[in-house]
């Protein structure tokens, strides 16, 4: 138990260090940008509606007078107190904007994450188990096609077919314009196509990697021995068990890609989520918001990696028992 705790703390420390690196990288990249947030149109408009303190702090972060290190440390100090600054676009605290947008995206992301994982695992197992035969060829063909397809183009196609041509689903917006209160079925209807797009693209990658792992396992001695002993249900009893660990890694590693995909897909469906906010922040020169989104997203990705590592300890008997003995 002590061993596990030490492992977790070590991982957490590494994660904190990485987050620091991410924020510094993002800050320096934005600082290097020739676009001055206070001079862009949105920035100008925003300045008018801000309190003097807010403007002063903004200049502290982004003004050209102070050296970059000082400004970064100022930002970092704010973050440690839970203050990510104020979004220029939305004129509200960054954390508030992110929270609201994330709540909108979370639906979409979690559904797509589970769906793509389940679909990818099933397809990968089916393809790997029938290697070289038609189900495998079919699934591999599907994966190759999908992974060669830009997610946003797939989104456009789905939009054309379901919203324009068949007219069964709405073109965009998870909330009807005007009314802030959307019913659950209404929300689902709007999240369906974006979720479908993300699931289809995400599943292809997971399926291909799962297939490789399944083939590795099927080629291993322990499967040969199981066959030599006339065991039935080899797929369920041995392959699934041995593919579980890599599948967990894949599943959690897919979070980053999923969020990346949501940036493009939300743009196509004008879905008011985190991804769309990131694009708006980037185009509008809303540096505090973009920086906040980058850090929060990275935290989610690293959190996913940490979760995978911890799950390993629960599932893998070598780690579980090894730790128990120490």
């Amino acid at each position: 138990m002590k061993h596990r705790l030490k492992f977790t703390i070590k991982k957490l420390l590494r994660m904190a260090l990485l987050l620091l690196g991410v924020s510094l990288t993002a800050f320096l990249l934005m600082d290097a940008s020739p676009l001055d947030p206070l001079q862009t149109n949105i920035g100008q408009a925003a300045l008018g509606t801000m309190s003097p303190e807010q403007i002063a702090r903004l200049e502290n972060y982004w003004g050209v007078d102070a050296p970059a290190t000082e400004r970064y440390l100022g930002w970092l100090g704010g973050v440690l107190r839970g203050d990510f600054g104020v979004s220029l676009l939305y004129r509200r605290p960054v954390l508030e904007v992110i929270g609201q947008r994330l709540a909108g995206s979370l639906w979409l992301l979690v559904c797509a994450w589970i769906l793509s994982g389940a679909l990818g695992l099933a397809l990968g197992l089916a393809a790997g188990a029938r290697r070289g035969r038609w189900p495998d060829r079919l699934i591999r063909g599907y994966c190759l096609t999908v992974s060669s397809t830009p997610a946003f183009w797939l989104a456009l196609l789905l939009l054309m077919v379901f919203a324009v041509w068949l007219k069964v689903l709405p073109i965009g917006l998870s909330v009807p314009i005007g009314g802030g209160q959307a019913t659950l079925p209404e929300r689902l209807r709007h999240a369906l196509l974006p979720g479908l797009t993300l699931s289809i693209t995400g599943a292809a990658n997971i399926a291909l990697h799962t297939r490789e792992k399944v083939i590795d396992v099927l080629d291993s001695d322990c499967i040969l021995f199981a066959r030599a002993r006339g065991e039935g249900h080899i797929l369920r009893r041995h392959v699934l068990r041995n593919v579980a660990l890599p599948a967990i890694t894949l599943q959690f590693a897919s979070i980053g890609e999923l969020i990346g995909g949501s940036v493009l897909v939300e743009q196509v469906f004008s879905y008011p989520g985190l991804g769309q906010a990131a694009v708006a922040a980037g185009l509008g020169g809303d540096m505090p918001l973009l920086l906040g989104i980058t850090v929060i997203t990275a935290a989610i990705v690293f959190g996913g990696n940490l979760a995978a590592d911890l799950l390993y300890g629960v599932i893998d008997p070598r780690i579980r028992r090894g730790a128990a003995r120490k």
Partner: peptide, 20 residues
């Protein structure tokens, strides 16, 4: 790890902004 921690598309946006 750091580069993989930021979704590709976000990092590209950041770098692209940095390069104007």
């Amino acid at each position: 790890d750091l580069v993989l921690g930021i979704p590709h598309i976000l990092l590209i946006i950041l770098v692209s902004l940095a390069c104007g």
